[in-house]
Simulated assay, not measured.
Amino acid sequence: MSEAPAILIAPDSFKGSISAVRFCEIAERVFAEHLPGVEVISRPMADGGEGTVEAVIRGAGGSLHTERVTGPLGEPVEARWGLLPDRRTAVIEMAAASGLPLVPEGRKDPLRATSYGTGELIRAALDAGARRLIVGLGGSATNDAGAGALQALGLKLLDGSGAPLPPQARSLLKVARIDASELDPRLAETEVLLASDVTNVLLGPNGATAVYGPQKGVDAELQPVLEEALARFARLTVAATGTDHRETPGAGAAGGMGFGFLSWLGAELRSGFEVVADLVGLPEVFESGRLRLVVTGEGAINDQSAQGKLVGRIALLSWAHGVPVIALAGALQPGYEGLYAQGVASMQSIVPRPMSLHEAMRDAGDLLAARVRDLAHALQATAFGAWP
């Protein structure tokens, strides 16, 4: 008997409605009911932003841990991080502690926002014995160059009189000296890998404040203020560390946290997609030669999807191995057709009729199940349906 065909489910999250893990669970259930002879392989994906920890632990194994940490506005939040089976590698999402979804609409305050909670997550991972940290940079509410996180790890920002400054972005406007004498000594023996597909530098028109500041509440009046805050912190950092990462691609990720961690923690920066793909064994799944179809998806497919976003990366990987791809989305927006040139066979919205965004997000699980059911029925008419 021929080996049964395999379908790979490898989606991104539908932000605010369906996690990548839930997408996989829904697809597994529907395919098991309608295509019982087909093996379904799930690899929920992420690129360093929302859902990275959950996707990695689902794909690579390990354990989830929850900490009560400082949120972006200084209020306590519950944040999860993961510990891989080797017990020395931790996976952390900065967005879990310092992300924009943690800031209620109407309360965005980029001068006050802090990444301190991300540092607390790192400290918890170090306490658990981790000496390799994979930190996902994405979805931040902050514009503090990661200074808040570094302060949680022992770095001191001092004003002109030598007094310590609070962990807020506005403190970067007053910092006169940076004292690293109490930086957690465990960091010296810890490998830090930053996972991000952002290539922005720290400053300037392609920098953290100019490009990502507006979504965090940075208006035209605040933009030069926060730009100067980052520039001041950067000048002092370069003088103190002897390294200059201001122009390093990715330094502007997560409100400049890329720069802070590259400079003070000796971190390495890699593509978030590639980091997650390697951790969950995605290349090995393709190299098995058993895949007959890949199903991927994200909340919105548009002109950016073919420019390095996760669905586009999945499409290129599939194309390289000669496997067709079907992409499901909450919305197909202008420019989505660009993915056809990357080997995507079909793109479909899970929304079957006009409805409000609230309704679509509320019912996203049911809408996805219905669309996967339609896909399963279509596959039954092909060779997939011939396997017992």
Rank of each mutant, 00 (worst) to 15 (best):
R235I: 09
G330P: 09
V276C: 11
V275A: 03
N302I: 02
V351L: 02
P354W: 01
R290K: 13
V323S: 06
V295D: 09
A329I: 02
E274G: 13
R353P: 04
P324R: 13
P249H: 09
V275Y: 03
L316F: 12
L317P: 03
A254R: 08
L269Q: 08
A253T: 01
S305H: 07
A341G: 14
I350F: 08
L332C: 08
V276R: 13
S356M: 10
L282R: 00
L332H: 11
H245Y: 08
L265G: 05
F233M: 07
L282I: 02
M347D: 04
A345T: 11
A300M: 08
G256V: 04
L316N: 14
A300R: 15
E268M: 13
I301C: 04
S318T: 08
F286V: 00
G312K: 03
W319M: 15
L310A: 11
R292G: 15
R270E: 15
N302E: 10
G299N: 07
P334M: 11
A331Y: 05
V275C: 06
L293A: 01
G343P: 09
A251F: 12
A329H: 01
L265H: 07
F233R: 04
V276S: 12
R232Q: 12
L316V: 15
A239W: 08
G338Y: 06
G266K: 02
D303H: 15
A234H: 07
F259G: 01
V311L: 07
G258H: 10
G272D: 08
A360Q: 05
A240N: 04
A254M: 10
M355H: 07
M347N: 04
A341F: 12
G242Q: 02
D278K: 11
V280S: 06
L236R: 09
A234E: 02
Y340E: 12
L328T: 13
G252V: 01
H245Q: 05
S349W: 10
T296K: 00
L316S: 14
G343Y: 12
V351D: 00
L279D: 04
P324F: 12
Q342M: 11
T296F: 02
F273A: 03
A267K: 02
G322H: 08
